[in-house]
């Protein structure tokens, strides 16, 4: 089954990372992903820009409202996601444990089974 791993953290803290710290964390996270990529289990991965770059479109009875900023003001922000193919929730939890060890400190991960998946065609 496909699972989405949604990453939440305080972007004020993440935004304070030095280039060296950022590079190190990214390399460590990549090391966690590598065996999964090789096993053909890794789906798309995205790291999002800060919520200051976000725009929200809210549906209303009439014209939808286009608003600046994220959908909700929260203490932790949605900062990125992984999609992985796993046999069981147990397996996903282990991956998330590895990810959280590679990126210690605050934050949380939400594991959500994927209902429909469309790989899309966008290239970077």
């Amino acid at each position: 089954m496909l699972y989405a791993i949604l990453c939440y953290n305080d972007e004020a803290a993440v935004g304070g990372w030095s280039k060296e710290h950022d590079d190190k964390i990214m390399a460590d996270l990549l090391a966690v992903q590598k065996p999964l990529v090789e096993a053909g289990k890794m789906g798309p991965v995205a790291r999002l820009m800060p919520t200051t770059a976000a725009t929200t479109l809210r549906k209303t009875a009439g014209e939808p409202l286009v608003l600046d900023g994220p959908f909700a003001e929260t203490k932790e922000q949605f900062l990125g996601f992984y999609v992985i193919d796993a046999e069981s929730l147990e397996e996903v939890v282990q991956v998330v444990r590895d990810l959280s060890e590679a990126n210690p400190g605050m934050g949380s991960y939400e594991i959500r089974p994927v209902r429909d998946f469309f790989p899309g065609a966008a290239k970077t």
């Binding site: 305080d10 004020a12 803290a13 993440v14 935004g15 304070g16 990372w17 710290h21 210690p104 400190g105 605050m106």
Partner: peptide, 13 residues
Amino acid sequence: DDTAWIGLTLTGA
């Protein structure tokens, strides 16, 4: 290294 996040959290806060 494991405690680096504390400094960063404090800076952010």
